[in-house]
């Protein structure tokens, strides 16, 4: 009997079941709320399953900005993810292979992540006003990219360092260019890590709130801002909020399920090595 391959005994099963219940029930509650009528979300005892169970609040939630919010979030998130993964892995490759910037470069990049967002909010606001980019997709895409880049560099550097140098050297001897060695040898080998990294970028940009609040406005309203707007109003439309929140979580959750293989493996590959 090996330590880690002993399957699931009854104790482990119960432990996992209880923990899963704790971690999933709030999400389930949210989904249930999205079907409730006005009179049903605040009652005692609480209503668990709505008696009407209609999709009315989904429609209404989408109509009052939810659809636009999800669309904006998609545009911003996909662009950000592409930009930061591409630029970030290039930089990470250089750092890993050629020790560009010495040993502390990666740490220095990561330290930018430490800066409290409030410190950069006003300067960024003024900066984008100067460029006349407020309330545009570009502003948020750029902002999220700089926030994501350090993280991408940090993760990808780990993945590249894991790769044996010899593979690329062999390719170089065979007449491959440096760029070729990167795109044809190194990149495919770290692709699980790349997918995991992209997923993290996607998650961050999809979920971000405070920058979106200040840099977006009327033309660009990501879904997080849209939801917060509904909660701050004079009448809190809980069913609509839950409906939009549920829809906003769908892409992320779908991605997580489709890419679950990469998620754990990607992290195993190198992230944890720093």
């Amino acid at each position: 009997m090996r330590y880690r391959k002993n399957g699931v005994n009854i104790l482990v099963f119960f432990g996992l079941a209880i923990l899963l219940l704790f971690f999933l029930s709030p999400i389930i509650w949210n989904v249930l709320t999205s079907f409730k009528d006005r009179g049903e979300y605040f009652t005692y005892p609480p209503v668990f399953i709505s008696s009407t169970f209609s999709f009315e609040y989904y429609q209404h939630g989408l109509a009052i900005g939810g659809a636009k919010g999800i669309q904006d979030s998609l545009i911003i998130t996909l662009s950000t993810t592409a930009i930061s993964v591409i630029l970030g892995s290039l930089a990470a490759y250089s750092i890993a292979r050629f020790r560009i910037g010495g040993d502390n470069f990666a740490f220095w990049i990561l330290s930018i992540r430490m800066l409290p967002p409030v410190a950069s909010l006003l300067p960024l606001f003024l900066f984008f006003r100067f460029l006349r980019l407020l309330d545009t997709y570009e502003a948020l895409i750029l902002t999220y990219s700089i926030i994501n880049l350090p993280f991408v560099v940090w993760l990808m550097k780990g993945f590249f360092e894991e790769l044996p140098k010899e593979l690329e050297e062999a390719a170089l001897v065979d007449g491959c260019s440096r760029l070729g060695a990167f795109t044809r040898i190194a990149l495919p080998l770290v692709s699980p890590g790349l997918v995991a990294t992209a997923l993290f970028c996607f998650m961050f940009s999809w979920n971000e709130f405070i920058f979106a609040l200040i840099l977006g406005r009327s033309r660009v309203v990501p879904v997080t801002v849209n939801i917060a707007g509904m909660i701050g109003g004079h009448e809190i439309l809980w069913a609509e909020i839950s409906a939009v929140a549920t829809l906003a979580s769908v892409p992320i959750i779908l991605l997580a399920f489709v890419l679950q293989r990469f998620l754990v493996r990607g992290l195993t590959l190198g992230a944890v090595k720093g």
Binding site: L213, R217, S218, A228, G229, I231, G232, G233, H234
Partner: peptide, 9 residues
């Protein structure tokens, strides 16, 4: 064009 903001904000 209407822009609605949470009333606390």
């Amino acid at each position: 064009i209407q822009v609605g903001v949470p009333f606390g904000l």
